[in-house]
Deep mutational scan, measured.
Amino acid sequence: KNAAKIVNEALNQGITLFVSDNKLKYKTNRDSIPSELLEEWKQHKQELIDFLTQLES
């Protein structure tokens, strides 16, 4: 999976991924984040940080 797909899947579940101080963060109104999503974010962390940083610049 690529970073764009992961970010879109998160958005579809009401979760916004973003970068703050070079760290991957998220915002959501959900009570909890599915563990498989958290695991996927960890596996692709640097790719996600790079992707989101490019989007914001």
Rank of each mutant, 00 (worst) to 15 (best):
T53M: 14
A3T: 05
N22Y: 07
L37M: 14
L24I: 07
P34S: 06
V19D: 00
L48Q: 00
A4V: 06
A10G: 03
F51C: 02
P34K: 04
Q46S: 08
D21K: 07
K45N: 13
N8P: 01
L37A: 04
V19L: 07
R30A: 07
K1H: 10
K42C: 14
F51Q: 02
Q54F: 09
E56T: 12
K5Y: 12
E56P: 13
T28V: 04
H44E: 02
Y26H: 03
N29C: 14
E56G: 15
I6K: 02
H44C: 06
G14H: 05
Q43S: 10
E56D: 12
I33A: 03
T53E: 07
V19N: 02
Q46F: 08
L38K: 06
P34N: 05
P34Y: 03
Q43H: 10
N2W: 10
N22L: 06
S57D: 15
K27C: 15
Y26N: 01
R30C: 06
I6Y: 04
N12I: 14
A4K: 09
D50H: 10
L52Y: 02
K23I: 13
L52A: 00
I49R: 02
Q13I: 08
E47S: 08
E47W: 04
R30D: 04
N29E: 13
L24Y: 01
E36K: 09
T16W: 14
L24C: 03
W41H: 02
L24K: 00
Q13M: 15
K42S: 13
D31W: 04
I33R: 02
S57H: 13
L55G: 09
N29T: 13
W41K: 00
I33H: 02
L11Y: 10
L48A: 00
D31E: 13
P34I: 03
L24Q: 00
S20N: 07
I33L: 06
A3Q: 02
Y26A: 04
E9D: 11
I33C: 03
L11W: 10
S32D: 09
I6L: 11
E40Y: 10
K23H: 08
G14D: 05
F18E: 04
H44W: 13
D21R: 07
Y26C: 05
E47Y: 05
D21F: 07
I15F: 08
V19H: 02
I33K: 01
I33E: 02
L37N: 03
K23M: 14
E56S: 15
E36I: 09
S20V: 15
S35W: 12
S57C: 11
D31R: 08
K42D: 12
E39Q: 11
L37E: 02
I33D: 02
L38I: 13
K42P: 01
A3D: 01
V7D: 01
Q46C: 08
R30M: 10
D50M: 08
V7R: 03
Q43C: 06
A4P: 06
F18V: 05
D31K: 09
S35E: 14
L17D: 01
T16H: 12
H44D: 02
T53A: 06
N12H: 11
F18T: 04
I6S: 01
N29K: 10
V7G: 01
N2A: 11
I6G: 00
Q13S: 07
A3L: 07
L11H: 08
E9G: 04
Y26M: 04
L48W: 00
K1I: 09
T53P: 02
Q46V: 08
K5M: 15
Q46L: 08
F18P: 01
L52P: 00
S20C: 15
R30Q: 06
K27N: 07
K1G: 11
H44K: 05
A3F: 04
Q13N: 10
N22H: 10
A3S: 05
K1P: 08
L17F: 04
K25M: 15
Q54W: 12
I15H: 03
L55D: 08
R30K: 08
D50A: 13
L24W: 01
I6A: 02
K42H: 11
L38N: 03
D31N: 11
K25G: 08
D21N: 11
S57E: 12
T16L: 14
G14N: 05
T28D: 02
S32C: 11
E36H: 12
W41S: 01
A4Y: 10
I49G: 01
K42V: 11
N22C: 13
I33V: 12
N29Y: 12
Q46G: 06
N12T: 12
K23Y: 07
N8V: 10
E56C: 11
N22T: 06
K23D: 15
L38C: 10
A3E: 03
S57P: 14
Q13T: 04
N29F: 11
L55Y: 12
P34D: 05
Q43R: 14
D31T: 12
L37P: 01
K5W: 14
A3R: 02
K42A: 14
L38Q: 06
G14P: 00
I6W: 04
I15A: 03
N2K: 10
L52V: 02
N22M: 08
A3V: 11
L11C: 11
A10N: 02
V7K: 02
K27R: 13
K1C: 13
E9V: 05
T28H: 06
N8R: 15
S32G: 07
N2F: 09
N8T: 13
S20T: 11
N22G: 15
E47M: 14
E40M: 14
I6N: 01
S57K: 12
E56N: 14
L55M: 12
Q43K: 13
N12P: 01
K23Q: 14
K25F: 15
K1D: 08
K27A: 09
W41Q: 00
Q13F: 13
N22R: 07
L24A: 00
Q43D: 07
D50C: 07
L55T: 10
S57F: 08
L11G: 05
Y26E: 00
D21I: 04
Q43F: 10
I33G: 02
L37Q: 04
L52W: 01
L11P: 00
N8L: 15
D21C: 12
K45C: 14
A10P: 00
K5R: 15
S57L: 14
I49F: 06
K45S: 13
L24D: 01
L17R: 01
E39P: 02
